[in-house]
Write a protein that binds this DNA or RNA. Structure first.
Lengths: 194, 194
DNA sequence: GGCTGACCGTTAGCTTCCTAATCATTCCCG
DNA sequence: CGGGAATGATTAGGAAGCTAACGGTCAGCC
């Protein structure tokens, strides 16, 4: 499990009580927020057990997925020139994965040590490397993915199609709000601050 | 931000395409799952920037909250004997926070180094320590919390009361499903496996 | 009264993330 | 064409999580 999170979320009545002391505390917002983090963490934990059983971590899996997606032969228009074939260099991988290049160096290190990727020099720019999936990685992923998909499906099995759509809609709304906050959009501030 | 997560989620059509190759892949489940993890991470990131501005981490904040909650004088029934006054020893804190005792040792180390807590021997059991919040921590929290609550409220500001209730309901449903999966409940398996 | 087992906190060593600094290479501009 | 500026990968060091193993302390049972 990734981060320290209170195991027992404060009950709603406690939030109401605390809001008396802190006018900035919005009880229903806090409740939704805590449940969001908590549930994300729990769901993550389910897949992590499957990861651990195959001796791979979330971070390394993400890199493999990125490379795998890029390695799929493209049927579409821009197939020949390799445009859009996914990230290949450590810097591109770091960008796509949302980690720093230093972190990506470490991930590629262990992936290479375990024989899942190869570093090869870029023939056209000697600053760069090209990261290649090995056959071993391909074989590993083909064995690993079905179980992973079943884990994901098991977690969401409790929701019907309509509920899933509703959930995604609400989550996307929150994502947009977070993006607006990051961009410093003043209209995205809490209404309590207006 | 906590963990490596694909910045660009695969589009739904890509999931549909991939499902042709992997029968275990449930596209709507995968979509909801990815959005859940991604949104939790994004929301977490918003508060984390506020944490970083005050030179504190999520983990240390959690410990302070636990101690603070425990330090509040109880108005209720069981006030006199100290029952229910919250965790005090490192082991209790670790249990409540959902981390190992070893991790809690490290957290208390840095918290003590920074003057937020004190370790004191338990007079009745020499194996144990009692962790005490300092006045500095109390002052810090009183200054920190309002901004934290505003961050949380800002993230959720985009949802109305009804949407928040719906979101919490769906999240709680997922949490229950995860608990059932952890307990090995066979009826909680994916319907695809039945 | 003294073992034995259980529990407490800590230590040691691993992983994966981060930032900051370093070094090689390429690009651009005068 | 020569010299910054920008870009790419790496290294070093730190934080926060984990497991495993340790020594100190208590408690229960012969």
């Amino acid at each position: 499990m990734p981060h320290l999170l209170l195991k027992d979320l404060p009950r709603y009545e406690c939030l109401l009580e605390a809001a008396k002391e802190f006018p900035d505390l919005d009880p229903s917002a806090a409740e939704a927020f805590l449940h969001l983090l908590r549930t994300g963490d729990e769901a993550f934990g389910v897949t992590e057990r499957h990861f651990a059983a195959h001796h791979i971590s979330q971070g390394r899996f993400g890199v493999l997925m990125l490379l795998w997606r890029g390695a799929q032969p493209r049927m579409g228009a821009a197939a020949a020139d390799g445009i859009g074939c996914g990230p290949r260099t450590p810097a591109e991988l770091a960008e796509a994965a949302g980690v720093t290049r230093a972190t990506m160096t470490g991930l590629i290190d262990t992936l290479e040590r375990d024989g899942f990727v190869r570093r090869e020099p870029d023939p056209s720019d000697r600053r760069m490397l090209l990261v290649q999936l090995t056959a071993k990685a391909d074989k590993f992923l083909r064995g690993f993915m079905p179980g992973h998909f079943r884990s994901v499906a098991a977690v969401m099995d409790t929701l019907g199609e309509g509920e899933r759509k509703t959930l995604v809609r609400l989550l996307v709304k929150i994502q947009r709000q977070v993006s607006a906050l990051k961009a410093g959009d003043p209209s995205a501030e809490s209404s309590a601050a207006r």
